[in-house]
Design a protein around this nucleic acid. Structure first.
Length: 554
RNA sequence: GCGCAAUUAGCUCAGCUGGAUAGAGCGUUGGCCUCCGGAGCCAAAGGUCACAAGUUCGAAUCUUGUAUUGCGCGCCA
C-alpha cells in the first residue's frame, strides 16, 4: 500500500517536470508514513519539504502543484490534501482496507508471514546457562526473548535454528562434581567440611541423595579425583535434563544442544586458534597466547591460551562461533545477559579476524530481572543458593503470564518482576486482557452459531455495511500486522509485537463495548462477524509468535 | 580512570527511516451492567522528553559537551 502511494507520487513528480511545472531532477528519498493522527489521513508524504531547496519554492507551493497532478490521475484515494508545513495527506477509500481482510482469511495462521528472510539461515543461541544449577528467573527472560526472536524471524521468512550452548568444559564442572560428592559424603555420615566456593543450593544435596539411593556408598572407596569426575559428569547431565524439563514447561524447545566439551573432543578449539594464527592475529607474551582484538576496536588484547597451557573460555567461544558459520548460518544471534556487554567487542573482533562481516553476529542483551516479592527485592546468587527458579515462577503464575510479562519491555530495559503482583491475575497482568479479547470473539461466535449464523466468507459479505469509523480503524490496524512482524524481525525486538496485540485488543474491547456484533440486520451482523473474526485470527497469530496461548474460553 | 547503556506523566515503560497536537498500563478522580462474558468500557487530571549547544524546512529521535544512574573493565567461567 505504501509502495503504491510512493509510485504514484514519483509518477506525478515526473509528469510535473515533463510539463515544466517543476524544474529540478532526480527524486529525493522521501518517506511515505502513517501519521499519528487520523485527521492527517492514512498516509503522509514529505516530498514537497524535501524538494523546497532544489526547486527554490515554498514547500506548500510545490505540494500544490503535485496535488493538482495527482488529483487528475486515478488512484485508490478518496481525497488528497495539503497540511502543516507541506505534507501531502492521502485519504484512502474504505474498500482498500476492507478488501485486505480477505487476505487474513485466505492465509489464516500464515497471515503475517513475510519474505524478508528469503529462506536465509539464522541461528538463535539463547539461555545457555551453565549446567551447574536449575534455571532462575533471569534465565526465563532470556528464554522468552530468544524464543520470541526466533519465532518472529521464522514468521519473517528466515530459516531458524534454536540452539543451547552447554558450558560443560570449565572448572565449574569440577566444582559441581566436588559439591555433589561432598554432600554425598555427608549423607553417608562422614563429617566433611562444605566450603563456601561450592554450590550451596539444596538441589546439590537432592542430587547427591538420588545418586546415593541408586548407586549406594561405593564412591566412598573410590579415588577422590575419579569420584569427582564421575559426579561432575552425572550431576551435570542430571541438571541439564532438569533444565530441559523446565524449558519444556515454559514451552521452549531447542533444535540443538551444543556441548562445549565437544569442541575439544573434535580439536576445534586448537583449529580456531590456528586459524587466527594464520591471519597473524596471535602473539605470545609472558608465556601466554594473545589474540590482538585491539586491532578490531577492543579495549585490550585477550588471552586464548594461558601460560599454564589451559585454554580460556574465550578460546572455545572463538571455536564455537567459527564453527557456527561453517554450519552455514548467514546470521548468528546470541542472547546474553546485559552484564556481559563488555564481551561484545571481542566477539565482533573474532568475526573481523575471520574475515566475516561483524554484522553477521547480532548480540541481544537482556537486562537481568529485578525480582521482587511484595515489593521487597529478592537477592539472587547461584553460589549462595538464594534464588527463585524459573520453575517456581512457572508453577505460581503460569506459562502465559510469565512469557508475556518478560516480553513487555524491550530486552535491554530493566524489568521489575513482582511475584505477588504477577500472581494476582488482575489488570496488572495484561496477558489476560489480550487473551480475553480472543475469547470474546469466540464467545460471540458461539452466540452467532446458536442464532443459526455461520461465519461468512469474503464473497458473502457486504463490506459496505462496515460504515463505522471504529470498524475502519480496526481494519487498518489489522493491515499493519505484517509490518509489525517485519519490523520486529529486522530489529530483533519482539516487544513490538507485545505492544501491538495489546493495542489491537484495546481497540477491539472498545468497539465491543460500544456496539453489538449480532444485531437485527443480518447483513450488518455478517459483516461485523467477518471483521471481528479477522481480529481473532490476528490476535491468535500474534500470541502464537510470542509463545502465549489463545484460549477460546477463560 | 576508561568503556558500554540508560535518563520521556506520580510509578513502570512504548515511541519505527528525523515529521504535524509526545502515547499506553498502573495509580488518582468521576461515570457505565435490562445489553453478544464487567477479567471489560468511557471521561478527567497528569510533560521544560535530564541539561546546554549544534546539524535543518522540521529533533524525544542525529552530533558534541555536562550531570545523574546502572553495568563492564582477570592468564575466571
Amino acid at each position: 500500500m505504501k509502495q503504491l502511494i510512493k509510485d504514484a507520487v514519483i509518477n506525478g513528480l515526473e509528469q510535473c517536470r515533463a510539463s515544466g511545472l517543476l524544474s529540478g531532477e532526480g527524486c529525493p528519498d522521501f518517506v511515505v508514513e502513517v501519521p499519528n493522527h487520523s485527521d492527517h489521513g492514512d498516509f503522509a508524504v514529505n516530498v514537497a519539504m524535501m524538494l523546497a531547496k532544489a526547486e527554490r519554492k515554498a514547500p506548500r507551493q510545490i505540494a500544490e502543484i503535485l496535488l493538482q497532478q495527482l488529483q487528475s490521475s486515478q488512484g485508490p484515494w478518496q481525497r488528497i490534501e495539503i497540511a502543516g508545513p507541506g505534507f501531502i495527506n492521502f485519504f484512502l477509500k474504505p474498500i482498500c482496507w476492507y478488501g485486505l481482510l480477505a487476505d487474513i482469511y485466505r492465509q489464516g495462521e500464515h497471515y503475517g508471514r513475510g519474505t524478508l528472510g528469503a529462506g536465509r539461515k539464522v541461528q538463535v543461541e539463547f539461555v545457555s546457562a551453565n549446567p551447574t544449577g536449575p534455571l532462575h528467573i533471569g534465565h526465563g527472560r532470556g528464554a522468552a526473548t530468544g524464543d520470541a526472536v526466533a519465532s518472529v524471524l521464522q514468521e519473517a521468512g528466515f530459516d531458524v535454528q534454536r540452539e543451547y550452548y552447554i558450558n560443560d568444559a570449565g572448572n565449574q564442572m569440577d566444582t559441581l562434581g566436588r559439591s555433589i560428592f561432598l554432600r554425598y559424603q555427608q549423607l553417608c555420615g562422614r563429617d566433611v567440611e562444605f566450603p563456601a566456593d561450592c554450590y550451596q543450593g539444596d538441589y546439590i544435596r537432592d542430587e547427591a541423595q538420588i545418586i546415593l539411593d541408586r548407586e549406594g556408598e561405593r564412591f566412598l572407596r573410590m579415588e577422590e579425583g575419579e569420584a569427582i569426575r564421575w559426579f561432575a559428569c552425572h550431576g551435570g547431565e542430571a541438571i541439564r535434563r532438569g533444565i530441559d524439563a523446565d524449558l519444556q514447561q515454559f514451552g521452549v524447545h531447542f533444535d540443538n544442544w551444543y556441548s562445549e566439551q565437544s569442541l575439544y573432543d573434535r580439536n576445534l578449539v586448537a583449529e580456531g586458534i590456528e586459524a587466527l594464527k594464520e591471519g597473524g592475529h596471535i602473539y605470545e607474551q609472558d608465556g601466554a597466547q594473545w589474540f590482538r582484538t585491539t586491532a578490531f576496536g577492543d579495549d585490550k588484547d585477550r588471552v586464548l591460551v594461558r601460560s599454564n597451557g589451559a585454554t580460556t573460555y574465550f578460546a572455545s567461544d572463538v571455536a564455537y562461533h567459527r564453527e557456527k558459520y561453517q554450519r552455514g548460518f548467514d546470521t548468528v544471534i546470541d542472547v546474553w545477559g546485559a552484564d556481559h556487554h563488555g564481551y561484545v567487542p571481542r566477539m565482533k573482533a573474532v568475526l573481523s579476524a575471520l574475515k566475516r562481516d561483524p554484522e553477521d553476529l547480532q548480540i541481544i542483551l537482556v537486562q537481568l530481572v529485578n525480582l521482587l516479592r511484595d515489593g521487597v527485592q529478592v537477592a539472587m546468587s547461584t553460589r549462595s543458593g538464594t534464588f527463585v527458579t524459573l520453575k517456581e515462577v512457572l508453577d505460581e503464575v503460569g506459562r502465559d503470564a510469565c512469557r508475556f510479562f518478560f516480553l513487555m519491555r524491550r530486552s535491554d530495559s530493566q524489568l521489575d518482576f513482582d511475584l505477588e503482583l504477577a500472581k494476582k491475575q488482575s489488570t496488572e497482568n495484561p496477558v489476560y486482557y489480550v487473551q480475553y479479547a480472543h475469547a470474546r470473539v469466540c464467545s460471540i461466535n458461539r452466540n452467532a452459531a446458536e442464532a443459526g449464523l455461520t461465519l461468512p466468507g469474503a464473497d458473502q459479505v457486504d463490506l459496505g455495511k462496515l460504515e463505522l469509523a471504529e470498524e475502519l480503524a480496526l481494519a487498518k490496524m489489522l493491515e499493519r500486522y505484517p509490518q509489525v512482524i517485519c519490523g520486529a524481525a529486522q530489529h530483533f525486538e519482539p516487544h513490538r509485537l507485545t505492544f501491538y496485540v495489546q493495542e489491537l485488543a484495546a481497540q477491539f474491547h472498545s468497539y465491543y463495548n460500544q456496539y453489538r456484533v449480532i444485531v437485527d440486520d443480518r447483513a450488518t451482523t455478517l459483516a461485523r462477524l467477518y471483521l471481528v473474526n479477522a481480529i481473532r485470527i490476528v490476535i491468535q497469530n500474534g500470541l502464537r509468535v510470542l509463545g502465549v496461548s489463545a484460549p477460546e474460553q477463560m
